[in-house]
Every structure is written in C-alpha cells, then in structure tokens.
Design a protein around this nucleic acid. Structure first.
Lengths: 69, 69
DNA sequence: ACGATATGTTAATAAAACTTGACATAAAGT
DNA sequence: ACTTTATGTCAAGTTTTATTAACATATCGT
C-alpha cells in the first residue's frame, strides 16, 4: 500500500563500461541471479547489499535506489 | 569481513521531540522490538524500512545509516 | 554453423529480517 | 507506594531475501 523502491542499476552498469550482472554480483558478494532479481524489481536488496552496490558505482545509495512514497 | 552499518536513530529520535521507539515503529509499520534491534545494531533493516525511517526524520537515508567499508 | 558470454526465469533450500508474546529493570508522575 | 511509559532482551514462529542449480533464448566473434 505504501511506497516502493525504484533502482537505476541497469543504467549504472552500462555507464560503468557495460559491467555484467555476474561481475557486479561478484564484486559485492552475491550471485548474478540476485542482481537480476533486484534489477528487475522482484525484491529489494538488504541495506548492506545496497550500500555495496552504490560503493561500486561511486555514487550515493540514494542515486541507485529511489524511494517513491 | 567487509564493512558494517552504523546508525543515528537514537540521536534523531531525541532531536525529534524525544520520539519513542514504539512511536517510530508505529509510524513505519514495524514493532518496537524491531526498532530496538536496529538501533542497537543487532541487525540492519530492510532497504524499505531504512527509507521509511529517514522519511520520518526528514533526512536522507545516508544521514540515518552510514556505511563503513 | 559453432562456441562463448549475457541475461531471463523457475524451483527448492537456506539465511536474514521481522513478529508476537513474555518477563525484566529504570525513571517519572500522581 | 503505585501506575504508567520507555527500554532491554529472549525464544519461537513467519515472511522476505539470497543461494544454488537447472534450462531457456539472444547476441557476438570467429
């Protein structure tokens, strides 16, 4: 009923030299299936995974994940 | 082995007119025990819960939760 | 055409987040 | 002294997130 979370992972990956889902997963310590699920909005990541992803892309967490109330 | 997450909930609650854990929990839809556990660092919240908490305090998510690599 | 890489998706299982209910202590108000 | 409010903590249970493995299609380079 309340808000949901949008993400820009796909865009950020392609701007980061077309990094693959598998490569991103390896960098943060999750599987490619997990990245695929997060990217497609099947579920949202843990806070820790979210921080690691934003760290890889060198941006703020809220530039990767956006809360819409 | 990698980093951990620090939070400023206690401080933010006291700055927000000494809002109780129970009140914060009610506002974001979790129990007071969950707030206590998050606040004390027993575990980190879901990304959704983290967004809701920062929304209540009117600050950015990364002002509530800080990632230390 | 063939082999390699990237991604989509599903099913079964494991781990983490969260709930409920309980019992405890401490501080504040009356 | 008594009641109320705030918080700490624990155990058992449910829900959500993450893992692994499998099978699928599409694209790219040779």
């Amino acid at each position: 009923m309340s808000g949901h979370i949008k993400n820009n992972i796909r865009t950020l990956r392609f701007h980061a030299n077309e990094m693959s889902q598998a490569e991103l997963g390896a960098k943060i310590g999750v599987t490619r299936q997990t990245i695929a699920a997060i990217e497609s909005g099947k579920y949202s990541p843990s806070l820790e995974a979210a921080f690691k992803i934003s760290e890889i892309f060198g941006v703020n967490l809220t530039d990767v994940f956006e809360w819409q109330a």
